[in-house]
Amino acid sequence: MTHLLLLDIGNTRLKWGIWAGGRAAPEPELLAHGAMPQQSIEQLGKELQAHPRPQAAIGCAVAGVVATARVEAQLASLGLRCDWIHSPPQQCGVRNGYTNPGLLGADRWAALMGARARHRAEPVLVVSVGTAVTIDCLAADGRFLGGVILPGFGLMLKALEMGTAGLNVPEGALREFPNNTSDALMSGGALAISGAARQMHERLSRLEGRVPVVLLTGGAAPKLELALGLPHQTVDHLVFEGLLCIAQQRGLLRPDLALRA
Rank of each mutant, 00 (worst) to 15 (best):
G172Y: 07
G172S: 08
G172F: 05
A173Y: 02
L174Y: 13
L174M: 11
R175M: 11
R175W: 03
E176V: 14
E176R: 12
E176H: 11
F177G: 01
F177E: 07
P178A: 05
P178M: 04
P178V: 03
N179Y: 00
N179F: 02
N180F: 02
T181Q: 10
T181D: 01
T181R: 11
T181M: 11
S182C: 05
D183S: 03
D183L: 06
L185W: 10
M186Y: 01
S187A: 12
G189R: 13
G189V: 13
A190R: 08
L191W: 14
A192F: 05
A192H: 02
A192M: 15
I193Q: 02
I193D: 04
I193F: 07
S194F: 09
G195L: 08
G195N: 09
G195V: 11
A196F: 10
A197S: 14
M200K: 05
H201I: 03
E202A: 15
R203A: 06
R203D: 00
S205Y: 00
S205W: 01
R206Q: 10
R206A: 15
L207A: 14
L207E: 07
R210V: 03
R210Y: 00
P212G: 07
P212N: 08
P212I: 12
P212M: 12
V213C: 12
L215P: 01
L215Q: 08
L215N: 04
L216H: 08
T217K: 08
